[in-house]
C-alpha cells in the first residue's frame, strides 16, 4: 500500500513549549487513521503540520508526495478544525456553497455535503442559531464538500448523538473506500475500533502506531482504554522530555 502522508522527525515548538519531539509516522492511502491521546498531547499540532498551517522547527511532513502546505495540495486537502470554523452569520447552506465555490464546485455538491452531515432540515438556518453539535457538523460539511484526497478531521464527532456518530463514521468509511485518506482525532476509545490504524500520542511522542487489533494484542487486553494505559505504563512515567509539566492520564 502506498503512503499518503509521511512524517519524519517532526519537531514543533509552540511558544517556548516543545509540543512534538521528533515524531515520525506513515499513513497509508485510502485508510482511516485514528489519532488518539489526551488533551494537550500534540494531536492538533500534528494535524496542523499535516495540513501545512503549522510552523515547524525541524523534520519533514510529506503529503501525496509534496511538502505539506504546498500550493498544489490546497485543492486536495480538507481540514476540520476543532472549534467549528464557519461563518455564524451565514446559513448552513450558504457556508457549504461558499466553501464548495473555493474548489470550483457548484451548489449541488454543497447541498449534498449538507445532506451527508444530516443538516438538510437546518440548511436554511443561520449557523449562529444552531446547537454546538449542529455547528460542528456544518463545519464538517465544509471540509468534506470537495471530497478531498486527504481529509484531516480534528474531533469531528464530539457532542454528537450516537446514531449520528454512527452515520458520520459510515461516511468516513465511504470516503476512504473511494480512495481518500482520513486522519481523525478523537477522545472516544470506542471510535478507535472503527479505524484501520491508530496513532497513540502522549506528550508529543508516539507510543503506538498499529492496527487497533495489534495495539490490543500487544497490550494483552481487549479494551483499548486499558491498552492505552498499559502502553503508557510500559513507557515508564513520567515522560522524560516533559519534565515539569503536569502529566495527563487519558480518560
Amino acid at each position: 500500500m502506498t503512503s499518503a502522508i509521511e512524517v519524519a522527525d517532526l519537531v514543533v515548538h509552540r511558544g517556548a513549549r516543545p509540543v512534538l519531539h521528533g515524531l515520525s509516522c506513515t499513513i497509508p492511502e485510502g485508510s482511516v487513521t485514528g489519532l488518539l491521546g489526551p488533551s494537550g498531547s500534540g494531536k492538533t499540532t500534528l494535524m496542523r503540520a499535516i495540513v501545512g498551517v503549522q510552523v515547524v522547527r525541524s523534520g519533514t511532513v510529506t503529503v501525496l508526495g509534496r511538502p505539506a502546505g504546498d500550493a498544489k495540495l490546497r485543492s486536495q486537502i480538507g481540514y476540520l478544525t476543532q472549534a467549528p470554523s464557519v461563518y455564524a452569520d451565514l446559513t448552513v447552506r450558504e457556508n457549504a456553497r461558499y466553501f464548495a465555490a473555493l474548489y470550483g464546485l457548484g451548489q449541488s455538491e454543497a447541498d449534498a455535503a449538507v445532506r451527508d452531515v444530516g443538516l438538510e432540515q437546518a440548511g436554511s438556518q443561520l449557523v449562529g442559531n444552531l446547537s454546538g453539535g449542529q455547528r460542528s457538523r456544518a463545519s464538517l460539511a465544509c471540509a468534506i464538500v470537495s471530497k478531498p484526497k486527504v481529509l484531516v478531521l480534528d474531533e469531528p464527532t464530539v457532542g454528537q448523538d450516537p446514531v449520528l456518530r454512527d452515520e458520520l463514521w459510515a461516511q468516513f468509511r465511504g470516503l476512504a473506500e473511494n480512495g481518500s485518506t482520513l486522519v481523525v482525532s478523537s477522545h472516544v476509545m470506542d471510535e478507535a475500533n472503527r479505524c484501520d490504524r491508530l496513532l497513540l500520542i502522549r506528550e508529543g511522542s508516539l507510543i503506538a502506531d498499529d492496527t487497533p487489533a495489534a495495539v490490543k494484542a500487544s497490550a494483552g487486553t481487549d479494551d483499548l482504554d486499558q491498552a492505552f494505559l498499559t502502553l503508557i505504563r510500559r513507557q515508564g512515567v513520567p515522560a522524560p522530555r516533559a519534565a515539569g509539566e503536569t502529566s495527563e492520564v487519558p480518560s
Binding site: 495540513v51 501545512g52 498551517v53 490546497r74 485543492s75 486537502i77 481540514y79 478544525t81 472549534a83 467549528p84 470554523s85 464557519v86 461563518y87 455564524a88 466553501f99 473555493l102 474548489y103 470550483g104 465544509c142
Partner: peptide, 13 residues
C-alpha cells in the same frame, strides 16, 4: 478569531 481565516488559507483561495 473564529478560525475561518486559517481554514480559508488551506483552500485554493
Amino acid at each position: 478569531t473564529t478560525g475561518t481565516l486559517e481554514r480559508l488559507l488551506t483552500t485554493p483561495l
